[in-house]
């Protein structure tokens, strides 16, 4: 047993509540007191499927409070379809919490822009809550395809965030990409955190670069193990990054990058250290 054995383990839980927040967007609340206690903002879990014929699904931990953690996910394939069919009282097992989450240890003041696209919103409630609890100002920039997919925005407002929204079809908030809304904001944040589709993350990173704002991106990639065992989910990272894996300090294949595991070294990385 390692030192963090108490923090990460298999949780045999059951479904406490199930909500369809939008067509194909499901929120599952599960009874898992230890996971709720140890989850850090931006961490994820590997949620095992009933039947066990397929790999577990990596899901961001949306809420973690008391005896309950919750997972929000978009139903987009067989595995998430199987998860969406769970009912209240059904057994559900997962292992976690995993990954390093957002890098917030040194953030005690200033104002933070949190950028979320689609179900990327699932990984940013906990960091928003944590920062607000420290007295940090949080502005949420939340984009989705349409108004009906802009789920749970009120939750962030209630938590104390200033909420800015955009939709691709103009049905709510700014008509266009959320990264464009961020770029056009008159206010310059002291830190940007982002989670969402890769094009949104790239655009957010550009805003961070142009405005000289340090930017953390929570990346997504297909996972198999979620714990650093299979090397399936890598991203090129500058060799000098503090998050670079312990790899040889020599050029590899003529390149000055290292492939870091999103699940183990991330999933959150400093945008300026990515070489993607």
């Amino acid at each position: 047993m390692t030192a963090h054995a108490m923090q990460r383990r298999v949780h045999d839980a059951h479904v406490l509540d199930r909500t369809e927040l939008a067509p194909d967007v499901v929120l599952l609340g599960v009874h898992a007191p230890e996971a709720a206690r140890f989850t850090k903002p931006g961490q994820f879990a590997m949620v095992m499927l009933p039947g066990g014929e397929n790999a577990a699904v990596a899901l961001g931990i949306y809420e973690a409070h008391g005896d309950r953690v919750s997972f929000m996910f978009f139903v987009c394939g067989k595995r998430t379809h199987d998860l969406a069919r769970l009912h209240i009282g059904d057994r559900i097992s997962f292992y976690g919490p995993l990954g390093n989450g957002f890098l917030l240890d040194d953030v005690h003041s200033g104002d933070v822009a949190i950028v979320a696209g689609g179900v990327g919103i699932a990984s940013v409630l906990l960091p928003a809550q944590a920062l607000i609890a420290r007295g940090v100002t949080v502005r949420l920039y939340y984009g989705a395809r349409s108004a009906e997919r802009l789920v749970d925005a009120q939750r962030f407002a209630d938590a104390g965030c200033e909420v800015h929204t955009s939709t691709d079809d103009g049905s709510h908030g700014y008509h266009g990409y959320i990264s464009d809304l961020l770029a056009s904001a008159s206010h310059t944040p002291t830190l940007i955190l982002a989670c969402g589709p890769t094009p949104m993350l790239r655009a957010t990173a550009r805003v961070g670069t142009e405005r000289h704002v340090p930017t953390q991106l929570s990346l997504e990639e297909t996972f198999a193990c979620g714990v650093g065992g299979c090397w399936g989910c890598v991203v090129p990272l500058t060799r000098t990054s503090a998050q670079a894996p312990s790899f040889p300090p020599i050029e590899c294949d003529g390149s000055d990058v290292v492939n870091a595991r999103i699940c183990a070294e991330g999933p959150v990385f400093w945008a300026h250290e990515l070489r993607w």
């Binding site: 790999a55 990639e221 198999a224 299979c230 989910c233 040889p248 020599i250 590899c252 294949d253 492939n259």
Partner: peptide
């Protein structure tokens, strides 16, 4: 010699396997 490995995506989940 050290190897960077292949470009991503490196994994695809498929029916009853990957």
């Amino acid at each position: 010699k050290p190897r960077l490995g292949n470009a991503t995506p490196r994994l695809v989940h498929t029916p009853s396997g990957m």
